[in-house]
Design a protein around this nucleic acid. Structure first.
Length: 198
DNA sequence: TCATTAATCGAAG
DNA sequence: CTTCGATTAATGA
């Protein structure tokens, strides 16, 4: 979701900036705002009973988060933390809903945005249910490539650390490293200077 | 050069 | 597959 800044400001949007590693909101907090990233990266995560981190999604510039909970009265099911210094525009829930009423175009766009999230969840859920680590990673890679629509073969740069990839598919870093090496041998991906090309 | 963070590796469970 | 321990590479103060 990417709403025009002027529209956000006219409905009471305010600038907020966070440092790297800072938490924007935590699990169980009440969902009270719509957040749109102006600069930086944010991860949505949670921890299992053993303290192992699971990353639900990583968002960047011009993407929004926290919005899927504004339509229902629930608490956040995960945390939002900054992976880099981040600037966001924050809009209170009621102002956001009011904005949608006055700008039907964004209301429709919001549907597309939520669909995109659902699609991502479905893809990830299916690949994660696989026992094979390469299949899990392939699901993530396929989604990323389709989302950022790269046309050429093996030239799409995956801008995630191996640790982040591991936390997105529910595996350990070492397992990801070994699986990626195997995929490289099978020519499914390319690795240059530790950078992953798919 | 020292410190920090990510990536790797090998061995064992 | 995960866990542990140790090493190596890259980056920045």
């Amino acid at each position: 979701m990417n709403i025009d800044k002027d529209v956000l400001y006219s409905f009471g949007g305010e600038d907020k900036s966070y440092k790297k590693g800072e938490t924007i909101y935590s699990e169980d907090d009440h969902a009270l705002y719509y957040f749109q990233i102006v600069e930086g990266k944010v991860k949505l995560n949670s921890y299992d009973e053993d303290g192992k981190e699971f990353i639900h999604n990583i968002l960047g510039k011009n993407q929004s988060f926290g919005d899927s909970l504004l339509f229902i009265d629930k608490y956040y099911p995960m945390n939002a933390m900054c992976l880099s210094p981040t600037e966001v525009i924050r809009l209170p829930k009621n102002n956001f809903l009011e904005m949608l009423e006055k700008h039907p175009k964004y209301s429709v766009e919001m549907n597309a945005c939520l669909s995109q999230r659902l699609y991502f969840k479905s893809i990830m859920m299916q690949s994660i249910s696989s026992q094979n680590p390469m299949t899990r990673l392939k699901g993530l890679l396929d989604y990323l490539r389709s989302y950022y629509d790269s046309d050429c073969e093996q030239c799409f740069h995956i801008e995630l650390t191996r640790q982040q990839m591991a936390n997105l598919v529910g595996l350990r870093v070492e397992t990801v490293i070994r699986a990626l090496k195997k995929m490289e041998k099978e020519n499914k991906i390319k690795i240059e200077d530790r950078k992953i090309l798919y």
